[in-house]
């Protein structure tokens, strides 16, 4: 069986990816909304989503609540979040500012935008992938800060 030769992590990755697609399909076909984590949170934070605040908060409650409940039962898998709080504050700030400037992140541009062949989303995804690889290389292999 081909399946037996696929590393388990890849199979779980594929299964999780399919669940992410199901979540995005549900939100699009039933509610007429695009699943973008930074957009849904950003609209709550800066007030641009005031017209559908309830929907946004419900999405965030599900996104934060269900994994937390699941790991309470199964045991929490490692997140390996850095303990360097200055680094995490800098990284979080860059992610918040950058995703709002670009109007999307991995879910909005990467999953929902690329799959409808939006040129904007394809460019955004290529840029953040490239920037991520370059910055990771600099920070890990050249500077040794992460």
């Amino acid at each position: 069986m081909l399946w037996n030769h696929i590393p388990q992590a890849w199979a779980y990755g594929l299964a999780g990816g399919l669940m992410i697609a199901a979540a995005a399909a549900l939100l699009l076909l039933v509610n007429g909304r695009i699943l973008g984590a930074s957009g849904i949170l950003g609209g709550v934070v800066d007030g641009t989503g005031a017209g559908n605040l309830g929907e946004r908060l419900a999405f965030l409650a599900g996104l934060i609540g269900l994994p937390a409940a699941a790991v309470a039962v199964t045991g929490a898998p490692a997140v390996h979040a850095s303990h360097d709080l200055v680094l995490m504050a800098l990284a979080g700030g860059l992610v918040g500012l950058g995703t709002r400037m670009a109007n999307g992140c991995t879910s909005g541009h990467g999953v929902c935008g690329m799959s409808r062949f939006s040129a904007r989303s394809i460019v955004a995804t290529l840029v953040y992938l490239a920037a991520g690889m370059v910055v990771f290389f600099l920070a890990r292999h050249l500077l040794g800060v992460i």
Binding site: A37, S38, L41, H80, A81, S82, L87, M88, L90, A91, G92, G93, L94, V95, G96, L97, G98, T99, R100, M101, A102, N103, C105, T106, S107, H109, V123, A124, T125, V127, Y128, L129, A130, A131, G132, M133, V135, F136, A139, I146
Partner: peptide, 16 residues
């Protein structure tokens, strides 16, 4: 914006 996001993503390993 995407470049800034990619930089933060790399430093923490987290996207939103």
């Amino acid at each position: 914006g995407s470049a800034l996001f990619g930089a933060g993503w790399a430093l923490a390993g987290f996207c939103p």
